[in-house]
Design a protein around this nucleic acid. Structure first.
Lengths: 126, 126
DNA sequence: GTAAGCCTTGACGTCGGGGTCAAGGCAAGG
DNA sequence: CCTTGCCTTGACCCCGACGTCAAGGCTTAC
């Protein structure tokens, strides 16, 4: 399978695949004419990368999963390094979600105050 | 007040102030020698920008607040345009938080499954 | 033979919010 | 007079994940 077909089957672009190869994430075999040659396993690796990217993982964070698959495991998250990335991501997400909720609350209060200036008088009307 | 003093009093850098000016967000008067000259009102505008930036607002999103203050309102969020930005931000935050929570849940499940392969057998052990 | 449709590498653009020089002007103190 | 410490503009650098040419090579179809 050539680069265009792989890109299409994975719902991405050839530019992206070349970029992954340049990063050492998805190296490609070459045909006699220099064309990149991929197989079904590469498609699986690529899908793993794309899934994690959709989750918001950095490209580098997908590397352990890809290497895990390449090592022969049926799932990319069957290796300790992958699990470590999962855990770190959970912590990051919890922290981020917490911050966003705090910001959301702040803005909510400010909006309420600005929408209804009476509230600024102290709430004695309750 | 010159640029260095304003930057220090607002806890930011001169580069940042020049950047804001280039964006048309915080124009500065000039001394005879070409030095930027700021006053207390500029400090207030700058603090409004910084507060919103800390909340994760884009620079452009702070513009209505700055213009509101410049129009003479004591609070930057006293104008309809500012309130519209607040509301849009709340929607964005709600959407984002929701997505992040969904991702968090997905990763949590995957981590649990990968940590304890027994779960994959179907949960008959319960 | 030539046009179409793949493929190759290389290199620059994008976005936001500035950071980091570089080269030079202005003001004050010793 | 010289240094120090402000200030000025201009210009390139950074990050991440690609997008978008440009110039050229291979293959197949007509």
């Amino acid at each position: 399978m050539r680069i265009g077909e792989l890109a299409e089957r994975a719902g991405t672009t050839t530019r992206t695949l070349r970029y992954y190869e340049a990063r050492g994430l998805l190296p490609a075999r070459r045909d006699a004419n220099g064309y990149r040659d991929y197989d079904e396993r590469d498609l699986k690796l690529l899908r793993q990368i794309r899934t994690l990217q959709d989750f918001g993982f950095d490209l580098e964070e997908t590397r352990p999963f890809v290497e895990c698959l390449r090592a022969g495991h049926p799932e990319g998250d069957a290796c300790p390094a992958s699990l470590a990335v999962y855990r770190r991501k959970l912590d990051e997400l919890d922290a981020l979600i917490g911050e966003l909720q705090a910001v959301r609350a702040q803005i909510g209060v400010r909006l309420a105050l600005a929408e209804d200036p009476k509230c600024e008088l102290g709430g004695q009307q309750w």
